[in-house]
Design a protein around this nucleic acid. Sequence first.
RNA 1: CGGGGAGUGGCGCAGUUUGGUAGCGCACCGCGUUUGGGACGCGGGGGUCGCAGGUUCAAAUCCUGUCUCCCCGACCA
Length: 420
Amino acid sequence: MRLTELFTKTSKTVPADETSKNAQLLIRAGYVHKEMAGVYAYLPLGLKVLENIKQIVREEMNTVGGQEIIMTSLQRKELWERTDRWDDKKVDVWFKSELQNGTPVGFGWSHEEPITDMMKNYISSYRDLPVRVYQFQTKLRNELRAKSGIMRGREFVMKDLYSYSRTEEEHQKIYDAVTEAYLKVFERVGLGDVTYVTFASGGAFTQFSHEFQTVTDAGEDIIYVSKEKNLAVNDEVYTDEVLRQLGLEKDKLEKVKAAEVGNIFSFGGAKSEQLGLYFADEDGTEKPVVLGSYGIGITRLMGVIAEHFSDEKGLVWPESVAPAKVYLIRLGDDNHVVKAADDLYSQLTSAGVEVLYDDRDDVRAGAKFADADLMGIPYRVVISNKTIADQTYELKARNKDTAQLVGEQELHRKLGLTKR
RNA sequence: CGGGGAGUGGCGCAGUUUGGUAGCGCACCGCGUUUGGGACGCGGGGGUCGCAGGUUCAAAUCCUGUCUCCCCGACCA
């Protein structure tokens, strides 16, 4: 992408009413636009990051046998009444409206009910199981108070996977597999070191659910981390009894703030019974399908990544999610500089390397460097009269302090260009 | 939902106390100089001062109502 064609621009100031670091940086760098409190639009660069995160999640979900679908935002009242979750007193984040004929509808804040109800059409025998389906959906939640930038919005993108199993044992296998897949996701987006499987309150069916908590000051949760065992306990279930059960020693735990980037839990057969999802087992008996639910807040994850990977100059995206791998700067508008930069741009692009090409003529070097830093693109390549005279390229990693002059071979190697 | 704060060109702000020609910085447009860490000079465009009503010769400024946003707290299957 050439910067002269990108409609967004960077800004030195942020809206005064935006206090969270992730939103400040993302707005300044032109990744997102704030439409209203807790509601953000994703601009070209922001969308790119979002899609990169989604693709990583998608790959991991496919690996554990997930099939991707997309449900609807409009939901039926009747469905939620069956699980007693339509009432505003039971679920206080509902957005509701009605059809022209007066039929009430809800805007999906979760999709457990509709998906499970839908699966009744497709699951009737043990031969149909297990099934895992997932989607990326915009959830709408009428939060009392939105905060923390894109980390807690009224409208946000979530990946939710649902598993349908014959037995508890089968369910447990899937549950464990998804747990591993989640850890892989957080590893791949660069948060592996600071993300912990966390024991949290489980609800009706199981004692615990498992959250994936990323340590960050921007988080809203308090967790107690055991580095030794590589797990954590949410403050909400932090009791002596629980610690004993989990074999944790109180004085070896570290209390930290964290953001919940994922949550998985088991429903057993309870919800299936409420919604009438049964299957005929091998012996012909009818049994409720064992249900599991697994979520990753995609936009929240993006916010957490932005918070975690940033410095005083701006964002510092991990390569796996960055909107581009290289920020290419050309200094000056001498013909041979322009040509050299154009050439490298098309060379990298055709090799499949995403490049943000700062081809602006009317912007001085300092501003280009500042923008490269703010946008947080992993590698910066500078082409100038100097580098051309030396037959080198100036290469600097966003997370390193110094640049180096490298030859063409070296550049290609560092940027991971595929040899042909 | 309780407490606190704020709404003035796209963004950041001053002006409100004491009513009297709407201003500054960034961004934008033009010209010139500049050109490796957010350049400078000159000229220019853009604002129903959140909205509605009221007081007044006159309202960004005073009064009443209302909407929105932010912060802290509560809430977050």
